[in-house]
Amino acid sequence: MYRRLPGRESGLLSYSRLWLGPDHLLLARTTFFSEEYRRFYFRDIQAIVMRKTRRHLFWGWMCAALFGLCIVVLFIGFFDMSGRSIQSSDIVGIIVTGGSALVCLFFLYLNFVLGPGCICYVRTAVQIEELSPLKRFRTAWKVIERLKPNIEKEQGPLAPELLRPKPQAVFAAPSESAPQPPGQATPSTGITS
């Protein structure tokens, strides 16, 4: 009945996933031994909004800094070892520091491959909900590409004229805050309290 969609948000004790239902999108959040569901019916979805974030840059710099730190420690270690014989603790140190550097490099590569981060929202007539499993633009776009045909099947295609900018009114109505010319009163509604 449900097909799993890409993307996952993992917390310390919970995780969220998105599922594609026959007529709705299901956001399932699992905490310990219970699961909570939010359903977004295709006929109700008005828009999906993505906002670019700089989270991937932060993690990129963090991994790069840690990788650099490990390399510096390795160099200092090698410089220190050059004047004496190698001991077993040196080998352990090289393995630990080198291993940490490789892990940092792997995460740096992974962060690069996953691409820019984003926050994704689904909007209906009565709510704007964050789709927390969609943290990367590439994943979010994949999900949107899978949702689009289902939404269009329910709502029909979007008429292009709806997206054309509306012409600005030449004579704008006077705003309430605009100063009134002297001698002119505010139009009365005829209702007195």
Binding site: D44, V49, M50, K52, A125, I144, E152, Q155, G156, L158
Partner: peptide, 24 residues
């Protein structure tokens, strides 16, 4: 709306991509 690239918000300048559907 429904642009193929990121567009900045006119107020906060944050890059946005908005996919809208007929119900809107």
């Amino acid at each position: 709306l429904n642009q193929s690239a990121w567009s900045p918000c006119p107020s906060c300048s944050l890059p946005l991509r908005v996919e809208v559907f007929p119900t809107l």
